[in-house]
Amino acid sequence: MDSVTSTQAGTYRCYGGFNKNSSMWSHPSDPLQLMVRGTYDKPSLSSMSGTVLASGDNVKLQCFSSFKFDAFIFIKDDTPQFTQRQSSTAQDNGQQTTFHMDNVTSTQAGTYRCYGAFSKDPYDPSNPLQLVVRGEEAGPSPCPIQEMTLST
């Protein structure tokens, strides 16, 4: 398919024929969902608890899209092991879900995005949302450096 447009978006399956002249076809393949990026509005990600948090706070982050994605995937940039996936629910002419982060620490500060998804594959990401966590106890301060003069 060259120069794909939104008209080619949809679900595809392939079938195999036993020979050119056969009217017998194999069972269909698993479905392939073809999405065309930039065709739909991207999801939005917002914090219902603000973006500047105190250590120990609980945070609710809402992902919303006017497009009917099956699920949303919540990812911290540069930390692929921090990933949450939740089914979406119908809300206000679209789909949404709420992600929860309890008892936040400075390790959870950073940039997050949510992605709309069909089955298991993420689609377009939201704009980034930066979370700041303040108020954790700092570690010990380094000793001040003092000049020393050596006499010979």
Rank of each mutant, 00 (worst) to 15 (best):
G139A: 12
F69T: 05
S6M: 09
G17I: 10
N58R: 07
Q8F: 11
F82C: 04
F82H: 11
K76E: 03
T107F: 13
Q8Y: 14
P80C: 02
Q108D: 10
P80K: 00
K60R: 13
D121W: 14
P142L: 08
S55N: 09
R13L: 10
N103H: 15
L61H: 07
V59Q: 07
P122S: 04
Q62C: 06
Q95E: 13
Y112C: 00
D121E: 09
Q130G: 02
P140T: 10
E136K: 09
T11N: 06
Q130M: 07
S88L: 08
A9K: 00
D124W: 01
D2T: 11
S119C: 09
V132N: 15
P80M: 01
W25A: 04
K60L: 08
S49Y: 03
F67R: 13
A9Y: 01
S55Y: 11
P122E: 01
Q146P: 05
S44A: 14
Q95C: 07
K20A: 14
M148N: 13
N21R: 13
P122F: 02
S29H: 04
T83S: 15
S22D: 09
A117E: 01
D2C: 10
A90P: 09
S141W: 09
G94L: 06
Y40W: 14
D92Y: 11
L150H: 07
T97P: 11
S44W: 03
C14T: 11
D57K: 03
Q62Y: 05
D41K: 10
D121L: 05
F67S: 13
Q91Y: 11
Y40R: 15
T107P: 00
G116I: 00
Q84G: 03
E136S: 14
Q146T: 12
T83H: 09
Q81C: 11
P43N: 01
Y115W: 11
S23R: 12
I75P: 03
N103S: 11
M101R: 08
D102P: 03
H100L: 15
P43Q: 03
C63A: 07
F64D: 02
M101Q: 14
S29F: 02
A90Q: 12
A9G: 06
A117P: 00
M1Y: 15
T89G: 06
M148W: 10
V132Y: 12
S66F: 02
F99D: 13
L45F: 10
L45S: 05
Q108W: 11
Y123C: 11
A54R: 15
F72C: 06
Y15H: 05
L32F: 15
T7N: 12
T105R: 14
S6R: 00
L129K: 03
A117F: 07
H100D: 14
P128Y: 02
Q108V: 12
H27I: 12
Q62V: 08
P28F: 14
Y115I: 04
G116V: 00
P142N: 06
T11C: 04
M101F: 14
K60H: 08
T7C: 12
Y12K: 07
V133W: 13
C114P: 00
I145A: 08
Q108P: 04
M101P: 01
F82A: 06
S65H: 01
Y123E: 03
S141Q: 13
S65M: 01
T97V: 10
F18D: 10
S6P: 02
G110A: 03
V4I: 15
G16P: 01
Q96F: 07
D30T: 10
S55R: 15
D70K: 03
P144G: 06
N58Q: 12
M24I: 12
T5L: 00
Y115M: 03
G110Q: 02
T83W: 12
D30A: 15
N58Y: 09
